[in-house]
Design a protein around this nucleic acid. Structure first.
Length: 261
DNA sequence: ATGGTGGGTAACCCA
């Protein structure tokens, strides 16, 4: 059995102590981070190494984006892809000794206007998702887990108000459709929703709310998926809402699952 | 309808 967590950390250097706290409190075997906002060589690994996370793969760039996988279990680098040719560090993969591959994604947020004619970033987000679809279709992934900040809340109960968010980037029908096509192409099973099939679930709350907890205008942007051959091994899904209340928090909280493999 | 708060970097980019 191993446990896996995914967390958009919004700067791993600024929030090194929060990462260490999660690793201490929850001790997942594997932690996938997004928005590390750091070149790989400047990620503060010593504190994580001291907590038993001696294995590490990452991709990074200066100031933006960045993905990393910290692991207590041995992992090997399984490569990356530059989806949509953006030149961004938004994907990295790792392979465990049991043959399970873990993909860590940071899908583009897509800007404010949900129209690719008016907003290049929205088009790039859709193109990124289309290339994910094509890659999953070509690769036919097996024994694989994919996690990350997908920047889309696909279901009505993944947002505080389906109606009010239909034209808001992250919950528009075209984004949901593109994400669904990528999910279908890899036959990915949403492990969080396998475990928690109904009810409101959020993993992100805006920094801009006066009182994020009271307003509770959240969205489920962070996901854990698995291929059908291992999906039934996934269980014990959790979303750590209290982490949003930690001092100087990320706007995202960790999402966890366990796998009996 | 608008602006609200963060992070990075060193003018404004991005979320």
């Amino acid at each position: 059995m191993f446990t896996l967590a995914t967390w958009n950390i919004n700067s791993v250097r600024l929030r090194e102590t929060l990462v260490a706290r999660l690793l201490t409190d929850e001790a997942p075997d594997i932690l996938c981070l997004q928005e590390t906002k750091s070149p790989v060589e400047k990620i503060p690994l010593e504190a994580f190494r001291a907590l038993g996370y001696t294995h590490f793969v990452a991709r990074g760039q200066k100031g933006y984006n960045g993905v990393a996988i910290l692991s207590k279990l041995p992992i090997e680098d399984a490569g990356d892809r530059d989806y949509a040719g953006l030149g961004h560090a938004r994907h990295v993969a790792a392979r465990l000794e049991n043959g399970v591959t873990i993909h860590n994604f940071y899908v583009p947020a897509g800007g404010d206007i949900p129209d690719r004619e008016q907003n290049l970033k929205f088009g790039q987000k859709l193109d990124f998702l289309t290339e994910m679809r094509d890659a999953f279709h070509a690769d036919n992934p097996q024994k694989s887990i994919m996690v990350g900040d997908l920047n889309i809340a696909p279901r009505e109960d993944d947002v505080w108000s389906h109606k009010q968010l239909l034209k808001i980037v992250s919950h528009t029908p075209i984004e949901v459709e593109h994400l669904g096509a990528a999910q279908d192409a890899g036959k990915w099973v949403d492990i969080t929703r396998q475990d928690i099939p109904s009810g409101l679930l959020y993993s992100w709350w805006s920094y801009r709310a006066k009182d994020w907890d009271a307003a509770d205008k959240g969205r489920r942007l962070d996901h854990i998926w698995a291929t059908p051959d291992i999906a039934s091994a996934g269980h014990n899904s959790r979303i750590l809402r209290p982490v949003r209340g930690w001092q100087q928090p990320s706007d995202h909280v960790p999402v966890l699952a366990s796998f009996d493999l």
